[in-house]
Design a protein around this nucleic acid. Structure first.
Length: 877
DNA sequence: ACCGCCGGGTGCC
DNA sequence: ACCGCCGGGTGCC
């Protein structure tokens, strides 16, 4: 190709980020459990959605602002405490955030009080007068907790206003939404029953594939051939990226742009929404399809120009592959080298736009083009990404190498606003396993929303995990206006739908359909299911404890019960939830192997009262030994020099000390905002503990280990080539299992969260190797068995201990029960009889039923009660 | 007239 | 704003 082509393509901002959130879906860590608890106490709970009253007010100052509204359109009310003319000022803004005016000051006074004290949220609708020059009426509705009703009414009365229930004359109804079904208003006024709503939710993401069946061939550089459904996805994704159409639900009408869902109109053409949600079921090849998209759809629908690679340490490889017809895959060692001296270096060394690449391994090719902040010179991280992925295609099993990169990216992204990733105008940002951004409070979610990009994709098999709320962040990331702002999402979709509003539900369905492609393994293309996987059978094997084990178990249970009983008496179960979980972990560990339960040595610490210290050490020990590779919430890496704060959150010592150093006296815990001090950090006693049970005790077996071994020996007798995964949540349990594996001469590998990427990749490669003498067993920590991992060499899975989250187990099994698996997969779950494990299984089932029943409409008090009931059931109280 | 009334200037918060 | 409000001009009928 001529150099002019290179110019054209490079100046067109060739950038990608494929951001992988790998640690999803694994076991829940204790802190995650707690985070989930608090997550549910958000402000949009039904109990806070009581209508307190309504009143008509006045919007003034219209002539000073550009924001306009339509008849019946919603407006938002925003406090302006810093307003120099009136500290009670309440600003009125339209759906697009443009200011329309202010609330008249007499009314703003009581409103300010109510809003500032969180007595109620106020929502506005303009009933008429939208064309007025100076002021317009606004119907204000106050929403809040029942207990604040009196206070709100009083405050309004003090200022001479009386809140009513209805607006006289005119419509209370906003003109939001089109009656898509053509239902008469009578029918649509009948709210949906809970049952109907549940059904609708179940089906919300069912087979969103009609009209999306056109296939597209990927660019030549994609060496793996795509399945028909993948070609369809590629075609759909390409059309979503290249479309010059208005974003979903927008229409042009006499020079104005209307949103058919909301009836909102604006003069300016709404920004394009290029991208969407690829929500295919696990194992259908979402990532592969996306990589095909990256390679096939660059600018103007043309493939990525491979010549860009020229001059880099990778160029020879890339060019050879792209020009010659035989797409011989690069070797693993080549990839490793690239990983080591190319990409990693680029990302670490802040290669920022407008600057030349400094990395010696990647000499800059052209001077930087500083226009529009785009980046043309040298080999910056983003180009490296696409090259890495391209070269990886024929070598799909080398995926973990790529994943190693993603972790760095994730950490980078978190360095909010300041990260090199935030300074780049990306062509495309893809969130692999994008549902993890569903918590809007999480730093990673906030950071990801800040990324500048032309095209955005979310890949997720489970776009909605718990409730409708989960969808909000996804729309927010996709910048699908106005749903990227919480208030509008709540008012237009979430509240109407949870209150059973039919039009709201129709709108939601249209919304999802317009931006989502989803197929399941059972979806049919031309009468055939997409993926024909071998069978998958699950057996539960009950394990009976030996007399000695039973005695020990009962003792631990009695001790735990004593503590939990006390919490119940005090009514402090929820405040001591972490403690209760800790006790449960001990019991679960006992079911696996008695010596799993850590004992700690008490060291003197003059700074901390011994009782507190004991409790804290207890907690940190459990966190670290839960087998779930707890991360430090600051650096997001595995914990190094772990310490626990008085508020019971665990961080790396250097990380938390840095926080305290920079914030000084104001230092607060990043997770709970409790004040923290350096001298109030309690260390993990560490090594002595690890060494503790390593002697003598380890030689002892356990009933569960025995049960596993007899299974493994039987299998080996029947067929010595059969490979198995042995999965546990406790890495130290895996240590203990290694002993008899060696004793019986099994060749095995191991994969857990603490392993470096290099050893990880090696372990996977060894295991997947089918040559004689290769390992037949892989010890796999549940957490490490995350998305993307390919372990199809195994046809047997032994789940050593039940997880709280059955989905995590399923996902782990999917590592081997996926494309490429030729044998039937047999899953054996070991459950200790008459133990906390049996109770866990019962709760898992019950929980599933509950979730099915109350999807999206669960009440928080029920949830809290459910947790307490769970604890009761687990502890048999 | 320390008022009323008139009519011009003016205008969110 | 085809309003309200302000403050200056003005003043019997």
């Amino acid at each position: 190709m001529q150099s002019s082509n290179i110019n054209a393509s490079t100046s067109a901002s060739p950038r990608y980020a494929l951001i992988d959130f790998l640690d999803v879906g694994g076991t829940m860590t204790i802190s995650q459990e707690i985070a989930n608890l608090t997550e549910d106490s958000g402000q949009d709970l039904p109990e806070e959605n009581v209508q307190i009253g309504s009143i008509q007010g006045t919007v003034v100052g219209l002539r000073y602002y550009t924001g306009t509204v339509n008849r019946g359109e919603m407006v938002s009310l925003v406090r302006q405490p810093q307003n120099p003319y009136d500290r009670n000022a309440v600003m009125v803004a339209n759906v697009f955030g443009s200011q329309v005016g202010h609330i008249k000051k007499e009314l703003a006074a009581p409103m300010a009080y109510i809003m500032d004290n969180n007595l109620a949220r106020v929502e506005g609708v303009v009933p008429y007068g939208e064309k007025n020059t100076f002021s317009m009426p606004v119907n204000l509705t106050f929403w809040g907790r029942e207990e604040n009703r009196e206070a709100v009414h009083n405050q309004m009365r003090c200022h001479g206003f009386r809140l009513g229930t209805e607006f006289k004359g005119g419509t209370t109804q906003t003109s939001v939404g089109r009656d898509l079904l053509g239902l008469s208003s009578k029918i649509s006024a009948i709210p949906l029953t809970e049952e109907e709503l549940k059904n609708a939710f179940d089906k919300l993401f069912d087979d969103l594939m009609e009209d999306k069946t056109r296939e597209m061939e990927p660019a030549e550089a994609v060496c793996t051939s795509l399945l028909p459904h993948q070609k369809q996805a590629l075609s759909w994704m390409t059309s979503r990226e290249n479309s010059n159409d208005l974003p979903p639900f927008w229409e042009e009408k006499h020079g104005l742009y209307f949103n058919v869902l909301t009836n909102f109109a604006i003069k300016e053409r709404p920004e394009k929404v290029l991208g969407g949600i690829l929500a295919d079921d696990m194992g259908l090849g979402k990532t592969l399809t996306t990589i095909a998209l990256i390679v096939s759809n660059f600018h103007n629908g043309k493939p990525l120009p491979l010549e860009q690679c020229e001059g880099s340490s990778m160029s020879s490889t890339c060019r050879k592959k792209s020009t010659s017809k035989d797409h011989e895959p690069v070797s693993l060692s080549q990839l490793k080298r690239l990983h080591a001296d190319g990409v990693t270096a680029d990302i670490i060394e802040e290669d920022v736009p407008q600057k030349k690449a400094k990395t010696t391994a990647n000499p800059a090719k052209k001077p930087a083009d500083t226009k529009k902040g785009t980046l043309t010179s040298g080999f910056y991280s983003q180009e490296w990404f696409c090259w890495m992925m391209w070269t990886l295609l024929p070598l799909w099993s080398a995926l973990p190498l790529r994943l190693g990169l993603q972790k760095r990216v994730r950490r980078r992204v978190l360095n909010k606003g300041n990260s090199p990733l935030h300074k780049v105008s990306w062509l495309r940002v893809v969130l692999d396993e994008g549902h993890v951004i569903r918590n809007p409070n999480a730093l990673q979610s906030k950071a990801v929303l800040e990324l500048q990009s032309e095209r955005r994709w979310i890949l997720s098999g489970t776009p909605i995990q718990n409730s409708l709320k989960d969808l909000f962040m996804l729309l927010s990331f996709l910048k699908l206006k106005p749903f990227d702002v919480k208030e509008w999402w709540n008012r237009i979709i979430q509240r109407p739908v949870t209150m059973g509003d039919r039009v709201g539900l129709k709108n939601l369905q249209a919304l999802v359909k317009g931006i989502t492609l989803r197929r399941t393994k059972n979806s049919k293309v031309a009468g055939r299911t997409l993926v024909q996987l071998p069978e998958r059978r699950v057996f539960v094997q009950h394990v009976i404890l030996s007399e000695e084990e039973r005695e020990e178990y009962e003792q631990v249970r009695r001790e735990g019960r004593k503590i939990v009983d006390r919490y119940f008496e005090e009514g402090t179960v929820m405040t001591n939830y972490a403690d209760v979980l800790a006790i449960l972990v001990r019991l679960r560990q006992h079911c696996c192997h008695p010596s799993l339960v850590g004992k700690y040595t008490r060291a003197d610490d003059p700074g901390t009262p011994s009782e507190l210290r004991e409790r804290l050490i207890n907690k940190i020990t459990l966190v670290l030994n839960s087998g779930s590779d707890e991360e430090c919430a600051i650096c997001l890496d595995s914990l190094r020099q772990p310490v626990i704060t008085y508020c019971a959150h665990v961080y790396c010592r250097p990380c938390i000390c840095e926080v305290i150093r920079s914030e000084k006296e104001q230092a607060r815990c990043p997770l709970c905002r409790a004040p923290i001090k350096t001298k109030e950090l309690v260390e993990y006693p560490g090594e002595e503990m690890e060494a503790g049970p390593a002697t003598g005790e380890n030689c002892r077996s356990s009933s569960k280990v025995d049960a596993l071994m007899s299974n493994l020996l039987k299998l080996r007798n029947e067929d010595p080539t059969v490979k198995s995964l042995v999965v546990s949540q406790f890495t130290r349990f895996m240590d203990l299992i290694e002993v008899p594996l060696r004793e019986y001469g099994f060749s095995f590998t191991r994969l857990d969260g603490s392993m470096a990427q290099k050893t990880r990749a090696k372990a996977i490669q060894d295991f997947q190797d089918s040559s004689p003498g290769s390992p037949t067993i892989m010890l796999l920590s549940l957490k490490a068995g995350g998305v993307g991992l390919n372990l199809t060499a195994a046809s047997h899975v032994f789940m050593m201990d039940p997880a709280w989250n059955p989905a995590a187990e399923d996902q782990c099994v999917d590592r081997c029960h996926r494309l490429g698996q030729s044998r039937d997969v047999v899953i054996t779950k070991f459950i200790v009889k008459d133990s906390v494990e049996e109770n866990m299984v019962k709760i898992q089932k019950k929980k599933q039923e509950l979730v099915d029943k109350a999807f999206g409409v669960k009440k928080p008090q029920d949830l809290k009660q459910a947790r307490i009931d769970e604890i009761r059931a687990l502890m048999e109280i």
